[in-house]
């Protein structure tokens, strides 16, 4: 998976780069419009992470350039602006998704997974994790070949964990993923706990290993060891 990260803020760029590489992506970076434009024209990417406010241009123009080239790349807009307007324009221009800064890195991973899955395999992609097999298109989960019945939220939670294997997920990130990021996460910690407990129980009933670890005071982690 090859990504292009267009982000002008050096500290954010390096942190994102590190996180994305840890998640197994091949990442190239472009700190400004000019370099990003060159890279878009020269190379092919699976997905472009696009900051809209660049020092020498508007990210939306890069999006337009990508779309006129008919590039296969998915586009995930990252914007700090309270982007009620830009978001709509971006999506109209053909961006796949958007994230408003500041965002959770785990959320970024989940969105990226979804975009790449949709783009490259027309949805016919499955996720394998240890003894789990998930068909996202059908929302079907198999544990050792046996179907697992999950509620909507439990399924969302599982998919979120699967998008971030081996990463510590904060309670805030999980809460906002499940409830939308306008909810004050602190209000929803208790329900994450409930859902996780149920998910764990269902997995264990089917004989799956207990790979959802609780990180005390922090959150949860899908252990891949």
């Amino acid at each position: 998976m090859k990504l292009l990260l267009v982000e002008d803020e050096p500290a954010l760029r390096s942190t994102l780069l590190e996180s994305l590489r840890q998640s197994g992506y091949v990442v190239e970076v472009a700190p400004d419009f000019t370099q990003a434009y060159e890279k878009i024209k020269l190379y092919r990417y699976d997905c472009v992470l696009l900051d809209l406010t660049l020092p020498d241009g508007n990210g939306l123009d890069l999006l337009r350039a990508l779309k006129t080239d008919d590039a296969a790349a998915g586009v995930l807009i990252l914007t700090a602006r309270d982007a009620l307007e830009d978001k709509v324009i971006g999506l109209d221009l053909g961006a796949d998704d958007y994230l408003i800064k500041p965002f959770h890195l785990s959320e970024l991973n989940a969105r990226l997974r979804a975009i790449i899955r949709r783009r490259q395999f027309q949805g016919q992609h499955h996720i394998v994790f240890r003894d789990l097999l998930v068909w996202p298109e059908q929302a079907e989960v198999l544990v050792r070949g046996e179907p697992l019945a999950l509620t909507r939220k439990e399924y969302d939670l599982l998919l979120y964990l699967l998008a971030n294997p081996g990463r510590v997920l904060t309670k805030e990130a999980i809460a906002e993923h499940l409830c939308g990021d306008t909810v004050d996460a602190a209000d929803s910690f208790d329900f994450i706990y409930t859902h996780l407990k149920n998910l764990r129980k269902k997995l264990q009933e089917k004989g799956a290993d207990n790979y959802i670890r609780t990180m005390y005071g922090v959150g949860y982690k899908l252990s891949n060891e």
Binding site: L12, E18, S19, A80, K101, P102, L105, T170, V218
Partner: peptide
């Protein structure tokens, strides 16, 4: 938002 985004991203990385 930019410094906040940096703080948040780096703290999340630090947790890893």
């Amino acid at each position: 938002q930019t410094p906040l985004a940096i703080m948040q991203a780096q703290l999340e990385q630090l947790l890893q």
